[in-house]
Design a binder for these strands. Structure first.
Lengths: 336, 336
DNA sequence: TTGGTGTCTTGACACGTTTCAATCGTCACA
DNA sequence: TGTGACGATTGAAACGTGTCAAGACACCAA
């Protein structure tokens, strides 16, 4: 408890009058060493306040005990929940999670991956900012570092991935609105270049015969308000009676603007969001939304990763697709 | 680009027909080596796809190149913004950020800190789950690992800390309401055992002569709704005309319940929140709220940390206190 | 030629582990 | 008493860097 900077296995050995090999054995394979000796070593460890040096272990082992999660945005609730799921698995393996935030910037992503490669991390879970097949990712794989794709699983058979079925999610939302009697339905989305947006739209279009598309530049509340203005300004006989938004922020924006204009939700206009973020339930009118199994996504990704670690070269890649669920609240069904 | 598992500085040296010391110099002090040689080494590095092994560097250096941020809850927007601030500084130093999530569980916190100690991290930024003076924290400091306290600065002169002045925040909110002509004001808070809640209350009480306290069991929207019910049920002549909530989730709950009962915000009742989370501006009635300089908090904490790293033993600890700002929106001032 | 100076390069060690083969006792059995 | 076997312990060699004192070399002035 009192040795100033740091003490090594060597000093423990000296104090316990054994060799360093024995100390190492006490730490890693205690059953190999006689109880009396073991106790002497443990006492020495306690007396010196010895703490293992992981750098040295890593050097010897050839890889570190860290698993990296590379996400687009740490402040996005979707990713924080995924991270929690990952943690719950990684914790049980004696490894640590290291979260890297790319901010959707490919250059930053590149730097981060290079650093992770230098760290010789145990594995990487990533939602790539740019292309799925990043050259550095290829290099990581070639080097034997397992990589699992999160939420970008489409069409990559040559690695493990987890994702949620966005087409199904769109279908669920639209089917619910149709069932509630709506015929004129609007889809408010971000750029269709984002795969998730395109898939959700496609799913909705497959069940809503006349789906009117409002493509906004971003997935923000501000854009939601703008979309709502354009919808509300339509003549009543052509105006949609329901809106399906590509995410909850858009939906909150629509809700806010509609309320400001005195339209009643859901009676004058029904709204469905996507993601089921925490604040969806807390909105002025609680929001119906399509929920994704976010923590489960993280857990499964981590399990695939350790599967790959254990399998070694015999590993066969798997693509896991989850199903989203519709959560119905008062923004689509009048309960008063 | 093609060597299967990994290649070391030794193979680079061989390929470039120089000693390993020269390769090391090219990497770390390129000005020491002749341009021609330098180029030969760089070519060899490219040809072999060589990547530095950070474990070995760490072992040599005695510490890793990671800075740990230990937070209570990764999915809390407050902490994610703090983390972003930390990142923005740490990135410029060639180090990496590793985010650890304690979930307010002291046992988890303990395990995490032990692992960080084994990693020989460069420094730790922490919002402790339990006591400020954790025995493991003491050990880290004794071992020479700098520790900076985040948002728990009160009364600890023996280390660096950053925090926001919650008393001032409470005062700002209440003063604003008084200025708007309100005389009967309610404070809706979580347990006063949480220092932040107590401070915000104290600040508000110092300017609002008759402040009625509603102490709820948690800082959630659900509790906000419950509080709103109790307030709305009071006879009109005794009912507060304004509510100051200890955080935004409570405020959103109050807003939701008041709206549901047909009370107009801000005319029938004004509401101020705290934290200025992203969804405060997106609420049905945009919420006035007390904003904390969250990213700045993270940036400053990181700067204090590196200050301590550079100063060495001559370092003098500093406690930085930030001032919050009131953001006025429509939940307290009628703009229609 | 000698000595000195300055620029590049290098050999060798240390950092703290893990692991493997080898050693040392001890004990049971023939 | 000798032989084997078995359990406990250890010496030594790696893992891949960074550093430092010392060496090599070229050049210039005396």
């Amino acid at each position: 408890m009192n040795v100033p900077p740091t003490s090594s296995i060597k000093e423990v050995a000296q104090q316990a009058r054994v060799s360093i090999a024995t100390v190492s054995n006490v730490l890693n394979r205690p059953e190999l060493v006689a109880p009396a000796t073991r106790q002497r070593v443990l006492d020495a460890i306690a007396a010196l306040g010895y703490v293992r040096n992981d750098s040295a272990r890593q050097l010897r082992a050839g890889h570190s005990r860290m698993v990296a999660v590379v996400v687009l945005d740490v402040s996005n609730p979707f990713f924080t929940d995924v991270v929690r799921g990952v943690e719950s698995i990684v914790d049980t393996t004696g490894n640590m999670v290291i979260v890297c935030n790319t901010g959707e910037d490919p250059a930053r992503e590149r730097r981060q991956l290079e650093q992770l490669e230098e760290q010789r991390v145990r594995g990487v879970l990533i939602t790539p900012a740019g292309e799925n097949s990043h050259p550095i990712l290829e290099r990581l794989i070639k080097r034997g570092i397992p990589v699992v794709l999160v939420d970008r699983g489409a069409g990559t058979r040559n690695r493990c991935s987890v994702a949620v079925d966005d087409v199904l999610g769109g279908r669920l939302a639209a089917a619910h609105l149709v069932e509630q009697g709506h015929r004129r339905i609007a889809f408010v989305g971000g750029p269709l270049a984002i795969r998730q947006v395109a898939d959700r739209h496609a799913g909705a279009a497959s069940v809503a015969t006349s789906l009117r598309l409002f493509e906004m530049p971003a997935l923000t509340t501000q854009c939601g308000r703008t979309a709502a203005e354009r919808i509300a300004d339509l003549p009543a006989h052509r105006r949609p009676t329901a809106v399906f938004c590509a995410n909850d922020l858009l939906a909150l924006g629509v809700l806010q603007e509609m309320t400001r204009r005195g339209m009643k939700v859901p009676n004058d206009i029904a709204i469905v969001g996507y993601d089921d973020i925490e604040y969806a339930a807390a909105a002025a009118v609680p929001l119906s939304s399509v929920a994704q199994p976010r923590e489960q996504l993280g857990r499964t990704a981590a399990e695939l990763l350790f599967g790959e670690v254990n399998d070694g070269p015999t590993h066969r890649h798997r693509q896991v697709l989850f199903e989203p669920e519709l959560v119905v609240r008062e923004s689509t069904v009048d309960r008063s």
